[in-house]
Design a protein around this nucleic acid. Sequence first.
DNA 1: TTACAGCATTGGAGCGCTCCAACCAATAGA
DNA 2: TCTATTGGTTGGAGCGCTCCAATGCTGTAA
Lengths: 333, 333
Amino acid sequence: MVRPTMEDVALRAGVSRALVSLVMRGSPKVSEMRRSAVLKAAEELGYSPHAMARSLASRTSTVLGVMVSDLHNAFFAEVVDGIDEVAREQGFDIIINTGGRSPARERRALESLLSFRPAGLVLLSPVVPGGAIGKAAEQLPIVLVARSSRVSSVDTVNDDGEVGARLAVEHLVSLGHQRIAHLDGGEGTQAGPRRRGYVAAMESFGLAPQVVPSEYTDAAGARAVRSLIAEDALPTAILSCNDFNAVGAISALEDAGLRVPSDVSVVGYDNTSLAALRHVSLTTIDQPRAEFGRLAADALLQRVRSERTEPVRHLLTPSLVVRNTTAPPGGLR
Amino acid sequence: MVRPTMEDVALRAGVSRALVSLVMRGSPKVSEMRRSAVLKAAEELGYSPHAMARSLASRTSTVLGVMVSDLHNAFFAEVVDGIDEVAREQGFDIIINTGGRSPARERRALESLLSFRPAGLVLLSPVVPGGAIGKAAEQLPIVLVARSSRVSSVDTVNDDGEVGARLAVEHLVSLGHQRIAHLDGGEGTQAGPRRRGYVAAMESFGLAPQVVPSEYTDAAGARAVRSLIAEDALPTAILSCNDFNAVGAISALEDAGLRVPSDVSVVGYDNTSLAALRHVSLTTIDQPRAEFGRLAADALLQRVRSERTEPVRHLLTPSLVVRNTTAPPGGLR
DNA sequence: TTACAGCATTGGAGCGCTCCAACCAATAGA
DNA sequence: TCTATTGGTTGGAGCGCTCCAATGCTGTAA
């Protein structure tokens, strides 16, 4: 249960502690003979450097902290993959902590992450108030993903929800739809841009927008569709605020004896793994998630290396993924 | 960008560094007067303790490392929730790292986690060879979740796949099914117990087991069903190795013009959020995931506090969740 | 009065490492 | 021959903290 230290390795290799340190950091000014002797001793003892002592002594860190607001959402997993890829390439490690969607828990996660004095922090769709982020940003570089900020010391990476919604509308219009409703995400992150993009796109085609209040869950999607049916206001196509909502909408449509896509077309948003299941096969808007992560890590590392001080605002363009829930409206066939 | 140290707080509060340390650790032997003076100074300076320096000096850690083999799988998110809950209660923090399902990456993640010298480690369904785990177990307490081990210094928490499979078979038999096939998980973790439980349960009812090779994906489930149809060997009920496989199976059945559950019943395994979607509404086997996490954290903390040395092997009992993909076989109605 | 607890407080050593100035050949230049 | 130069190596200080033995106090018993 007790790990060997540099001192032990030095003793065994018959050199000084400082020399072991040089070898461990891959310094070029060590003779081949000593280097191999040190490496051998380290191997035999099962030595590996103590990251904390190292970071304490060097007053630097090779760790990037990542706070994931919700581990249950696979969206973030892919962003983390992107971050990890870039961090690894540049010799950084990442540690993750989760906020469980609750501001209090998130705050604690942030504190915990900060107590490790990482080189920088990526916050994935955080729900803590902006003030807390601004305060943390005084201590280290911070990048926000899927959340905007006006703080100039903070970089942001987001998808362009307006473009995504427009893509969906254009797709539906090109299929011949004119009555297209939007099941709105309400307070949810990114619901605003998606709604605005939908309304703008509809108006640009001279069509009347129909925004239906809803939420980011399948139950909410189903509820919204039932209310549309009850009011006899069912359109020929639906643009949901996300994939879960879309799946709920589809199931309510089917319950009502309607068929997707022959009677009603449905488009989701996010291209979650759910959408790709053949049983669902949902037409949806894809966001380049891994790219989010890569750009976030790049931006962060630039700040860490003090290569840049002006903020960066990445706005990535989403793309349309056509599957089997969209078709021309029934009347046109 | 520079955080204040204990020295700064001590200076401002007009006390010694050691006294600040006592206050920060909530020692009872500090006069109320000094305590509030220190707290006030800390507050004003925005001081928070340096976790690494603390752990270096105290030769202890209040951090638990968690390695998640696959962040994309929501299964682990709930286990992490359970770990987090218990750790927090007992004054520990957790840091997460991910192995991305690849042994090489996982090894690196393990190294990275170890370099922080955490008090202990929870490995969620790791794919690294047992040797690496055993070696790490010489350095700190380790608990394995969703993976078994014979190493006596390692605790394990698993679900009883045999019981789960039996529950599914019993449910189907009670509905009147006699021809029940199992779409097998092959090499996947926990596929073995599930298969054994299925075979044993079938035999205990005097029924002939029908094990069909498959995998833990929806595409594999669909493929397996198509091959059953092609061979004219379709049973009246299917027990899939997991939920994804089940959803794939359902979609292939529907493609073939069969209806679920009136023509064929399908049971999944894992009770993922997918299964709960109304569009899917899958009968499945639920594992107490958060409980996995809680037990794992408890076991780990016992070891950390040296309260126990003999290994613990938790085997949790799963339960059946009946939804809308199972019904009596068509012939009986 | 002295002695002795008991309590709050403090300085110093040390955790495992990095960094720096100093050092020591061995070789090169004059 | 003497002085520089260079490449390799080393001891010591110090990162922010904890822990411990020692210190100064007050209050109480002898």
